[in-house]
Design a protein around this nucleic acid. Structure first.
Ligand SMILES: [Zn+2]
Ligand SMILES: [Zn+2]
Ligand SMILES: [Zn+2]
Ligand SMILES: [Zn+2]
Lengths: 138, 138
DNA sequence: GTAGTGTCTCTAGTAACTAGAGGTTCAAGA
DNA sequence: TCTTGAACCTCTAGTTACTAGAGACACTAC
């Protein structure tokens, strides 16, 4: 049996976050000591590792909820899991695309100013004031 | 003079967001009609366009505050502006890096499951349960 | 038995908005 | 001039995924 602090050390998930996951329904309520402290078993540890891994990969709490629900029903179709993964991938790709556009623009903007001048002539400020100076869509 | 709705149309910033920017101190309080409605002049429109553009480029409200402050003092050094732009660029690059790592992993994960199977054998669920299946750092 | 650390619940704060309630003002047409 | 409907007002609360802090209790080791 692990205390919440033990679990935290093993999973690198902070203690308040573990409690938060419980409140959100991702973790089922663990046993308690007579003094009301949480005690987790191996299954609890596994479940939290799953959640941590999914969070690290950018899945939302809601998506993880659905995945865990599915995990609890081994004979159900995994179509939902596949859809969640695909949608997560396309989210990530959309974000990358947007960030690359921003990157290009920001490179131009920061190249245009070395910080040695004066606010009035600053290329950074001028660029923000006028989208027409932009070379790319964003 | 523009009403808040006019301003919203011209800048594509939603009405409640304009009020929010005012509350955050990004926009100075505009004149009001006798009936207490906001009326903006050309300077207000310009200011909001600046904010919108900076937000589109991912700058935080706090960063934009500093940039606007600088804009109000044309003879000050623009070093701060340069630093803000550089730091924004490196933020964006860090995010891209992380997302690319996630993308690789998610490609592997979603390729491993077409949704036709059953939860018990699902590669998506197995991958989330076991980081050792991962091919990349993330 | 006591000290010190860990744990408990509860509230509030973070970023940047967004939604809704309940009420007032404006502009245009009859 | 009157009316009607859209736009506007303030205020509160909700969103996401936590994080921080207060004040009190539990556990472990010496
Ligand atoms: Zn400059
Ligand atoms: Zn631009
Ligand atoms: Zn599957
Ligand atoms: Zn992994």
């Amino acid at each position: 049996m692990y205390s919440i602090g033990e679990l935290s050390k093993r999973t690198k998930v902070k203690v308040p976050t573990i409690r938060y996951y419980e409140e959100m329904g991702l973790l089922s309520e663990p046993e308690r000591t007579e003094g009301n402290q949480r005690r987790y078993d191996a299954a609890g540890l596994e479940r939290l590792s799953f959640i941590k891994h999914a969070r690290d990969l950018g899945f939302s709490i809601e998506a993880i909820s659905k995945l865990i629900e599915l995990q609890g029903h081994p004979d159900r179709s995994c179509q939902a899991a596949s859809e969640i993964a695909v949608s997560q991938l396309s989210d990530v790709r959309a974000k990358i695309k947007r960030l690359r556009a921003l990157e290009k623009e920001l490179v131009r903007i920061s190249k245009g100013c070395d910080g040695a001048g004066v606010s009035q002539d600053c290329y950074v400020l001028a660029s923000l004031a006028d989208h027409k100076l932009c070379r790319h869509e964003h």
